[in-house]
Structures are given as structure tokens and as C-alpha cells.
């Protein structure tokens, strides 16, 4: 149930704005890959293209050896790529447990020893039990009867992660899982991701929280203006001059400019 996710030469523009230019990256099988970059560098657009919510102007997406470039979201999900959204998209007027029963858990046959998923009307026993197990895993099983719309922001992130896991995806894409979440929940989330990864899942994570990314990821890929400008282990990326420039360059220059005394007077 592990798989490598790769993009090759993805290009996408919206009107005159080029969001992605020849973007080629790999999320190696069984690893956690971080995807970072300044705002507007094309991270979410790339997620949308990988998961079928948007079509690229050029380029290809591969899951293992299979090309999934033009697959619809439903198909991408069925093939084993689950994702969460930056602004969580849960079903607010369903209960937490009902949210868990929306994804088709049987699409890839599920893990061994999870019987009765196919005919689970409204959640047959197998489906329902697995849903509760996953909620217990992410730690929100106590809220299973609550309407999802009443959850806090962090709890919603956990719910979204939980129901993506229902289909037992080989690859999980997380769009800013730690954004706006309180620090203790961030650690909890990192532990869960780590644990899922040890079981073999491939992760590709967009995140601005650098401690989170550097602590969790095996590989980090940096996007700037829609192109990969660096890729490698966290320690190398942290000190890469191109990355520092992309992230801090303008800010540094601005700061220097502000510090310099005005000489014109």
C-alpha cells in the first residue's frame, strides 16, 4: 500500500498569472515530503492538479507507474490518493461519525481483515467500527455524535484527516495541517502522521510552520514562482542560499534599506 507520487513538468496559468512552471517533484514511497514556498508559489495549485480538482496546461502526474494526470477527483481518491484542504472541508450538518461514513471505504478493498465494507448501508458494522477506530486514533472519538459544524478548527483538521484515512490511501496530501492549530494539537498531529508513515504511507505536506516541517519530513521541496528551486533533506534546505533568498531575500533587503541612514538630506 505504498506508492510514489511524482509530477513531471506541470505548467498552469490562470489568465496572465503563471501559477506553475515546469514543476517536477517526487514524493518518494514511504517517506514524508514537505512542500514549502512563499505565499503564491503554487503549492495549493499543485495539490489541486494532483488530486484532479484542476487540469494542468501541460505536464503529467504519476502514481507509481500509472499516469493520473486527467483523472477526476473521485478517481484519484479511488486510486489511493487522499487529501485535506487548507480551509478544512468537512460536512458541517452531519455528525462526526456520519462524516466518517461518507468516503467509500471499500474502493481499494481496504486493509486486510476489515470485512463487510462493500455492503455497509449507512455504515454497516465493519465500516462503522473502522470509523470509530480511526476517530480513536486521531483522538476525537469522544465527539463522534457531535455535529461536525460545532467542532473547533483543530478538531476539524483531525476529522478531515480521519475520514481521508477511511479509504486507506497509500498517499496522503495535507494542505497546511498545522495552520491555525494550537501547539499541543500540532504535536499530536505530528505524532499521528509519523505513526501513519511508519505503517508505510507516503505523505506530501504543504506547511508554513518550519519547526513542524523540519522535524517531521524526510525530504523538503521548495517552490518559488511555480518552480522547484531546491529539494533535499531538511538540514540542507534550511541553509540553502536560494531558499533563504526566496523566503527572506526581499525582507532582508527591506530591513537593510530601512536601517541605512538617509544620506540625501
Amino acid at each position: 500500500m505504498t506508492a510514489e507520487l511524482a509530477t513531471r513538468g506541470i505548467t498552469k496559468s490562470f489568465g496572465g498569472v503563471q501559477a506553475l512552471a515546469e514543476c517536477t517533484l517526487t514524493a518518494p514511497s514511504g517517506q514524508i515530503t514537505g512542500l514549502i514556498g512563499p505565499n503564491g508559489s503554487g503549492k495549493t495549485t499543485l495539490f489541486n492538479i494532483i488530486t484532479g480538482y484542476e487540469r494542468p496546461d501541460a505536464g503529467q502526474v504519476f502514481l507509481g507507474s500509472q499516469e493520473i494526470t486527467k483523472a477526476a477527483p473521485r478517481r484519484v481518491f479511488a486510486l489511493g490518493v487522499g487529501r485535506t484542504f487548507q480551509l478544512t472541508r468537512i460536512f458541517p450538518r452531519l455528525t462526526v461519525l456520519e462524516n466518517m461514513l461518507v468516503p467509500s471505504g471499500h474502493l481499494r478493498g481496504g486493509p486486510a481483515g476489515s470485512p463487510g465494507q462493500r455492503n455497509s448501508a449507512g455504515g454497516g458494522r465493519g465500516h462503522r467500527e473502522r470509523a470509530m477506530e480511526l476517530l480513536a486514533f486521531t483522538g476525537i472519538d469522544g465527539l463522534s455524535g457531535a455535529l461536525a459544524g460545532t467542532l473547533s478548527y483543530g478538531q476539524r483538521k483531525l476529522l478531515e484527516l480521519s475520514y481521508v484515512l477511511v479509504a486507506d490511501p497509500a498517499v496522503v496530501l495535507l494542505d497546511e495541517p498545522a495552520g491555525g492549530v494550537n501547539p499541543s494539537l500540532v504535536n499530536h498531529l505530528a505524532d499521528r502522521i509519523s505513526e501513519l508513515n511508519k505503517a508505510g504511507r507516503t505523505f506530501l505536506i504543504v506547511e508554513h510552520n518550519m519547526d513542524f516541517v523540519m522535524g517531521l519530513c524526510h525530504q523538503v521541496t521548495v517552490l518559488d514562482y511555480g518552480t522547484v528551486i531546491a529539494s533535499g533533506p531538511p538540514d540542507l534546505i534550511r541553509n540553502d542560499p536560494r531558499v533563504l533568498d526566496a523566503y527572506l531575500g526581499s525582507a532582508l533587503l527591506d530591513a537593510q534599506a530601512a536601517d541605512e541612514p538617509a544620506v540625501d538630506d
Binding site: R74, A78, L101, S120, Y163
Partner: peptide, 25 residues
């Protein structure tokens, strides 16, 4: 309402694109 089919209908009501992305036809 209490069937999986009804659940899918109510999921469509809440967020149709998300439901589609989770395998709902």
C-alpha cells in the same frame, strides 16, 4: 435518511465537490 444513500445525499447538500472527491457518485 438512515441509509448510506441518504448519507450521500446529505453530504452533497453540505459540500458536493468534497463528496465527489471522497468517492460519492
Amino acid at each position: 435518511r438512515r441509509s448510506r444513500y441518504g448519507l450521500q445525499l446529505r453530504a452533497i447538500r453540505d459540500d458536493e465537490d468534497r463528496a465527489a472527491g471522497l468517492g460519492v457518485r
